[in-house]
């Protein structure tokens, strides 16, 4: 009950801001424009060769990657000031005075930001449907991509919430969430470039290095194996062999739970202090334990 009240208020505030509408308009325009350019350029060639399926696949790849980066970089903005913004507006105390639990507060704020991101994804579906004019992509593949988008949005939203509970100043928490995102996206790619390929895989089976398994671009490409970049598009995950996008989904779900759990802990009054105290207690307990052990020894 308290949760829905918070969600309704959040959605009201968001939807009344003009920038929400303009963002959706700009988002659709950008995707549409890029898609149109891609089709108009490649259809000139296709008229000669007659391979319309390739145009569909090319358009689909372009839209996927563009949408992925838009989602990745827009979603944190929806949530990265959710908690410390309330503190700065001096309304946080009032929330604490109410029956609102920290779980309801975090999940309500998270869901409100996520709904905003999902709205963008939903608005882009008509543009994606253009791909089906040309063919080349199965509905199951499109659904897998959609799942990855939703999970990525959830992950980015939970990262934003986490930063907003960690840092007091909204500007810094926003910057922090983008830095973390860039590290997550960029480090594996950097590693892949620096570490010589030959040490990891033989020429016969171009396996993807482990650190690229949890990467949204790889996950997206693995849903339809575009251009055979990813070999057999499956990877070893412990004893299992599964497509990269499934590995990505598992890791992302864990990361989402991790960030939400940390935020839940941090949002409670003096979360930091209690965390320190607990660590200190554990530490001193361990020390006691050790001294006891040494005495008996």
């Amino acid at each position: 009950m308290t949760f829905t009240a918070l969600l309704i208020k959040e959605m009201r505030l968001r939807m009344r801001r003009e920038r929400t509408i303009w963002l959706i308009v700009a988002y659709i325009l950008l995707l549409g424009l890029l898609g149109w350019l891609n089709v108009s350029v490649s259809s000139a060639g296709a008229n000669n060769s007659g391979n319309w399926g390739n145009i569909g696949l090319g358009l689909y790849s372009l839209l996927l990657i563009v949408q992925l980066f838009l989602i990745l970089f827009i979603t944190p903005a929806f949530t990265s000031t959710a908690i410390n913004g309330e503190k700065e507006r001096q309304t946080f105390d009032l929330l604490l005075c109410s029956n609102l639990s920290s779980t309801a507060l975090i999940t309500g704020k998270w869901l409100a930001g996520l709904i905003n991101a999902l709205l963008l994804i939903a608005a882009s579906i008509p543009i994606f449907s253009l791909v089906f004019f040309f063919g080349g992509v199965s509905p199951i593949q499109a659904l897998e991509a959609l799942l990855i988008f939703v999970l990525t949005a959830m992950l980015a939203a939970s990262l934003g919430i986490f930063c907003s509970t960690l840092v007091a100043r909204p500007a810094i928490s926003t910057a922090l969430s983008y830095v973390l995102l860039l590290l997550w996206l960029g480090l594996p790619v950097l590693l892949a470039i620096i570490v010589p390929q030959s040490t990891h895989s033989t020429m016969a089976s171009p396996d993807i290095p482990v650190y690229l398994n949890w990467h949204p671009v790889m996950a997206l490409l693995s849903t339809y194996n575009y251009g055979g970049i990813i070999g057999n598009n499956a990877t070893m995950f412990g004893p299992f062999i599964m497509p990269i996008w499934q590995v990505y989904c598992i890791f992302s779900s864990m990361a989402i739970l991790f960030f939400i759990a940390l935020s839940l802990w941090l949002v409670k009054p003096q979360g930091w202090n209690r965390l320190k105290q607990r660590l200190h207690k554990n530490h001193s307990l361990n020390e006691k334990h050790e001294t006891k052990a040494s005495v008996t020894a």
Binding site: T2, A5, L94, S98, N99
Partner: peptide, 11 residues
């Protein structure tokens, strides 16, 4: 709406 919100989060 302001008051309804606070009434809501007070359960």
């Amino acid at each position: 709406e302001y008051l309804e919100f606070y009434a809501g989060i007070h359960g």
